[in-house]
Design a protein around this nucleic acid. Structure first.
Lengths: 227, 227
DNA sequence: AAATTGGTTTGATCTGAATCAAACGATACT
DNA sequence: AGTATCGTTTGATTCAGATCAAACCAATTT
């Protein structure tokens, strides 16, 4: 691992407070790898050999059963993923696939488990990361079970828009659709549904002209939408 | 806390490996309380003051927004709940309500956080518990997004049935419906749907006469259904 | 025994969303 | 410039589930 990468990794919340020796022990045997878009990084049901930390790009976590497939989450830097599987030394419950070019740090699972046992600061960071991940999943489940597609979209727009009310999509609409748990067709319709509340689409720019009205439609809820 | 309760609590996975001093520190200021059915133990958006450990009975975790409500999980003994909120010292994302009479151990959140920092065995148990909870949520989300109601029911029956193929419901069907994420009406219809696959209902007893056929319909998946 | 109550089932209807299909539009390629 | 490609939009249809309403059933109360 290059020195610049090393210090970037060291600065991650997960590794920031641990001792130098512990960091060394975690990182030994780890490697940083770059992937093109559309690569499957890991497959559900495989055993959890490596903790993945996304440094650049974006990665989709998805799950499949009986020929169906669904996106569970989209991961942005800097974040670890499949930490729970690594800690428990179990199989992955989700697959992961790069959406864009991505740089990923891969840390042998046994390093994580070994250092966890001896470095309290690392243990605390791991628990923090895991608790955040758990709460994220709860929010996702609430978002999905308590809201319609158009409502999920409206709330996403309210969070993503800049102070001027514009949202510049940095990815294809199909990716946004998956992230919001709907088909591309229905995303298109959901955007049309929000027209009367001041939402207009032009290519990859969505503009929110009357945020207050949109908010009234969306019913934003800090227990679902907040970071 | 009575001595018999104390040793029962001590035997929980979460507390089994910690030192006696740590256990003492966690338990000091904790209290064991009994509740009748239908009592709200905690409400979403309240601050997480107590870790709850269910010793007897059953508790429903539910979430609400914009006038809608949904069941996230049903908890059975022995299990802790809302651990993530307590560890992060945040507000609860879910409400909890007793379904039956229930005995609950309530542990001050600051005890948990304090002992976590000094007892590695406890820290390990906490991470384990949290990782299990996280993976449970992932499974739930997959179960919900990838399957129809009838399929969720079929898989539930396959897990709940005894070797003879009988399932004795220990609670009302409305509770099962909530647990499976559907209305009571649709549970009734889902049971009817499974008739051709050898499922028959008689009051609170459901019998599965042709498990292999039901399995073919259900597509059970260890990455969703397994414990 | 009759009546009340509360859970369950059945039926009809409505809504949200997926699917199938075709048109459209922008970009990249020859 | 013309053409292929791929993502997006629009339309029609189908499906899963929720909702509303009424009937039903069993257990308990009066």
């Amino acid at each position: 691992m290059r020195d610049t990468d090393r210090s970037a990794v060291r600065a991650l919340h997960l590794f920031a407070d641990m001792t130098e020796a512990s960091f060394e022990a975690v990182v030994r045997g780890s490697f940083l790898q770059s992937f093109p878009p559309g690569v499957e990084l890991l497959r559900q049901s495989d055993t959890a050999d490596f903790l993945h930390v996304l440094l650049d790009g974006s990665v989709e976590l998805l799950a499949a059963t009986a020929g169906r497939e669904t996106t569970i989450a989209v991961v942005y830097p800097v974040a670890s993923f499949i930490l729970a599987a690594v800690l428990r030394d179990r199989t992955y419950l989700m697959s992961a696939r790069t959406l864009t070019r991505a740089r990923v740090l891969m840390i042998p699972g046994q390093n994580v488990r070994a250092v966890f046992a001896v470095d309290p600061a690392f243990a605390a960071a791991v628990v923090d990361e895991l608790a955040v991940a758990f709460r994220f999943m709860v929010r996702e489940l609430k978002n999905h079970k308590l809201r319609t597609g158009a409502e999920r979209l409206a709330n996403w727009l309210l969070l993503a828009m800049d102070p001027g009310g514009a949202v510049h999509l940095e990815f294809e609409k199909r990716v946004l659709a998956a992230r919001l748990g709907m088909t591309p067709e229905n995303l298109s319709r959901a955007l049309a549904t929000l027209g009367p509340y001041g939402v207009a689409v032009s290519g990859r720019v969505v503009s929110v002209t009357r945020p207050d009205e949109l908010r009234r439609f969306a019913h934003p809820d800090p227990l679902i939408d907040q970071v």
